[in-house]
């Protein structure tokens, strides 16, 4: 699926990366905990989150996240937008809650980016 289709499905506004709407995406990862994203998200996935601080962009850069979908209509602060522009990471903003966002994308064939997680792996 192209990012432009994701934009339509979610009735989203492109905040950063209008030039990257032809990018292909197949998977998504939803979370509000960046350490959770760091633990499990695979490269090339979309990150669905309610967070808008610059660390979301940093986390996405570290993990090679394909695009960030900010949910609940939250407006990212200027420092977040600036960093995303600098690092060339697309941000889309939708008014849907995370549940609805995940549901709509799932319905259109987007899948989770981890098959199954072994939460106990290497944990004491």
């Amino acid at each position: 699926m192209k990012l432009s289709e994701v934009q339509q499905i979610l009735d989203a506004e492109v905040v950063v990366g209008q030039d990257q709407m032809q990018k292909d995406v197949y998977t998504a990862f939803g979370a509000d905990l960046m350490s959770d994203v760091l633990a499990f998200a695979r490269p090339g996935t979309m990150l669905l989150t309610g967070l808008t601080n610059p660390q979301v962009i940093r986390t996405s850069e570290i993990l090679d996240i394909a695009a960030i979908i900010i949910v609940r209509g939250k407006v990212p602060p200027p420092e977040t937008i600036k960093l995303a522009e600098e690092l060339n990471i697309p941000i889309l903003r939708t008014r849907y809650i995370l549940f609805e966002t995940a549901g709509r994308l799932y319905r259109w064939g987007i899948v989770g980016c981890v098959d199954k997680v072994d939460a106990g792996k290497k944990r004491g």
Binding site: L33, S35, A39
Partner: peptide, 15 residues
């Protein structure tokens, strides 16, 4: 509120 401090960081490093 920034999405950190959930007690996962050191575990992620260990992982």
């Amino acid at each position: 509120e920034m999405g950190f401090g959930a007690g996962m960081g050191l575990m992620n490093i260990d992982r």
